[in-house]
Design a protein around this nucleic acid. Structure first.
Lengths: 164, 164
DNA sequence: CTTATAGTTAACGTTAACGTGAATTATATT
DNA sequence: AATATAATTCACGTTAACGTTAACTATAAG
């Protein structure tokens, strides 16, 4: 098992042609509290503890679409960052990238076409139902684990009692 | 994408050497309301909508250990069935089979060794924390989705108003 | 007893989701 | 300007989690 080798592409530094770059290191010359902060790929990779390869892979799958600098390098906006967060959250819940793409796609619907809207509504309803069931299941699991914890905790105390 | 081809190994029928077999078809000669009901592999496969291959695969990975009949066929107890449920639940939450094995393994600890118990306690605590964070995240996601639903619902009503 | 169905092992195939270089270009630091 | 980092585009490799025959045995139904 290759243990997530620390990518040789690590933190970048400093400014960018397209705004303030967040690279994990101090910014040099922050002109203004602009809202146009952007992130390099390795900054995001480090923040979310994934590889840059993964981020590019998500792009291949059209889950995210960063812009490029003059020098053809990707940069990510706050919105891109939020989307990446969503992707990773979806993964943690066991969704495949394909499913995640479908979910994300729903947020990009044409809000002026009735057909699209009703479709999105139905889709969202289905997802919501699933979600609520998952929350329920998780809560059950939590209770199970908690009682299990209590049980072995008691067992431990008993063991210590019998020792003294 | 191969669409989960309906396995050619489907519902079995009737009795078994080792008790009442649940095969999806009616039982022939139920002697007693015994608690020793068992299930065939295909019965479980059908119930949980997975392939028999998957179940055998989980066995290869030591996630489940059914007994065998004289004729070398697997049969599953209620306890096995519960475990399978657990496995599938774990999968739905994005755990790998390896992680699930680790979690399941914790329920099989030697309850008389202090070291084992404290280890299990720590492990369980970590899992519980993760779980609670997940529940929290899911709840957030639910709220997001709900407001999104409301939004497009409103948009739809507006569209219909302007039509009349 | 015959004949469908089910179930078994073994082995190779497949797909998603990246990992891992290699060669090249862009930025940043001194 | 020189040098060290980062980033980019292929392209092939890897791993988990099964899918898919194939060849054979066990059970159930008529």
């Amino acid at each position: 098992m290759p243990e997530n080798t620390v990518t040789r592409e690590l933190a970048g530094k400093g400014l960018s042609p397209a705004g303030i770059r967040h690279t994990g290191m101090k910014v040099r010359h922050m002109k203004k509290e602009s809202t146009k902060e952007t992130y390099t790929i390795s900054a995001l990779a480090e923040e979310f503890d994934i590889s840059t390869r993964s981020i590019r892979f998500y792009e291949e799958k059209n889950l995210i679409s960063p812009q490029r600098t003059d020098g053809n390098q990707r940069f990510y906006t706050r919105r891109d960052r939020a989307r990446l967060k969503l992707i990773l959250r979806g993964k943690r819940f066991g969704y495949s990238l394909e499913e995640i793409a479908e979910i994300i796609g729903m947020t990009d619907i044409d809000i002026d076409e009735e057909g699209q809207i009703t479709k999105a509504l139905k889709f969202g309803k289905k997802r919501l139902d699933e979600l609520r069931e998952r929350i329920h299941e998780l809560t059950l699991l939590e209770q199970d684990l908690t009682t299990f914890q209590d049980k072995i905790q008691n067992r431990l105390e008993e063991l210590n009692k019998s020792k003294s």
